[in-house]
Design a protein around this nucleic acid. Sequence first.
DNA 1: CCTCTTGACTTGTATAGACAAGTATATTAG
DNA 2: CTAATATACTTGTCTATACAAGTCAAGAGG
Lengths: 242, 242
Amino acid sequence: MPTAKFETIYKDMKEKIEKGMYQSEGIFPAESTLTAEYDCSRATLRRALARLIERGYIQAGQGRRMRVIYQPTEQHEFMIGGIESFREAAARNHFQFVTRVIHFAEEVVDEKIAKKTSLPLGSNIYEVRRVRYLEGKALILDINLFLCEAVPNLTPEIANGSIYDYLENELGMVIVTSHRRMTVEHATALDNKWLEMGDYNCLAVVSGRTYNAAGIQFEYTQSRHHPEYFCFEDTATRRRTR
Amino acid sequence: MPTAKFETIYKDMKEKIEKGMYQSEGIFPAESTLTAEYDCSRATLRRALARLIERGYIQAGQGRRMRVIYQPTEQHEFMIGGIESFREAAARNHFQFVTRVIHFAEEVVDEKIAKKTSLPLGSNIYEVRRVRYLEGKALILDINLFLCEAVPNLTPEIANGSIYDYLENELGMVIVTSHRRMTVEHATALDNKWLEMGDYNCLAVVSGRTYNAAGIQFEYTQSRHHPEYFCFEDTATRRRTR
DNA sequence: CCTCTTGACTTGTATAGACAAGTATATTAG
DNA sequence: CTAATATACTTGTCTATACAAGTCAAGAGG
C-alpha cells in the first residue's frame, strides 16, 4: 500500500481533530512536537498541515500557535464536494439511492453544444440523462455528455450503475481534474417532469468539465439539484496583501 | 515589497497561461526548464506549480509532461471565489457598485442565533443588513453579524463603505479563514422587498463564518444573491485511490 | 506599577540533494 | 516488421539545513 507519508499524517491529524481531541484548549501542537511524534521531516509535516489549513481544520499564522477551527456540520444534508460520484456521496451518508436512466443517445457536437460544453465540434458523444433518487425522493437530474472515443461501448446498463466506476475500473482511465460552476436557474419542463419541485421554480445547477490524465476533456456534466437537498461547502483563506 | 518568491513565480506562470502562451501545443515546460528560467529550487517551483494545479490551470501526472487545461470563462458574470469583498469583486470586473445600509442594530446572541451562526451565546453583536447594487440593479442582500468586541465602534457610516477595509486597515485585523456554505432557499419577504426578484421565487444563499488570526470567529454572514447574477466556480482534483 | 527590551519560542520561505515511480522513446533481439 | 528491453526523460516524495519574520512572556529599568 504505497500511500504517501504526508497523506497518512494528514488523515491521522484530521481524525484526531474530528474526534475533538483539541477541543478544550483549541490550540494545536507545534510543528516541532508533531515532527517528533510522526517521525518525519518538517517539509513532510507541513505538507500535511497545509491540507488541514486548506480544508479549514486548523489555522496558522507566523509566530503564533496553530489553532483548531474545525466545527462539525450537520451531516443529514446531501453535500457536494470534491469529485465525488453520486454513488460515493450517498454511500458516505449511508443513504439508499437509486439511479434511473431516462435518456440515452448518440449525438454529434454542433456549434451550440460546443460553445456550452467546450467539447470539440463535430465529435461523437453519448448523451445520458439520469434521475437520482435518494431514499425514494427524486433529487437530481443528471445530464452527461461523454466523448465516444474516450468512453467506448457505453451502454444504458452501465449508465444505470456508476459510470465513473466503469471508467476507472474497466477502462483504467484516471480522472484527474474537474472544473465546476454553480448557478441557480429556472426549472425547465424536464425538471418539473422528473423532480418533485413543489413550489420551487428554481434549482441549483452544477455544470462541470472533467479532464482525464491525458489532459483532454472527455465529459461535460450538468447536475440539476432540487434546492431542498443541495448544499455546497467551501473554505477560503485570505492572503495578506503586503 | 516582501512578496514570496513562489508567489511571484505562480503569478507569472498564471499570466502566461491566461495570455494563451501554451495554447497551441497544450504542454507546459518541464520542471527542469522552469527552475532554470526562474532561477529557483525545485521545491519553490513546485509550490507555485501546486497552486496552478489546484486552481485548474495545468494538470500533472507522474512521468508525463504537464498540460495546460485552462479555459477562459466569460467574465461578465458576477463571480464569487476566495474571500473577496463585494467591493473587490466589483472592482475586479470594472463595475459600478453601490452599497446601501438598510438595517443597523446592536443585539445579543440568543440560543437560536447561536445555533445558526455558532457565535458565542450571550455575546453582543452588531447586525448589519445591506443591499448591494451593481450597475443600478439590486443583486445581493447581505446580512452580517459581527462580534462587538472584535469590531469596536462600528457605525452605519462605516458599514456603508467596506467593513473589511475598516477591519484590516483601521483595526489592523488580519482576516484569515472563511467557511462558506452555499444553498438555494425560498425568497423571503425581505428578499422580495429589496431585490427585484422578477419571477424567481428562490435565491442563492452563501452563509459563512469568518475567523481572524487569533482563531476566533468574529463574523457570521449571509449573502442572499439574485439567481441571475450568481455564479460560483471551483476546481476539484481526484486522487488515485490506491 | 508601567514600559521597553531581550530572548526563546512559533510559523514561513528557500535551498540542495537523494531516491522512487511512472512514461515515452530509442534500441535490440527475435 | 514486431515485440521485448534498456534508458533517458518526466513528475512525486522525503530529508536535512538554514535563515527570516512574527509572537509572546519573562525580566530589567524607569
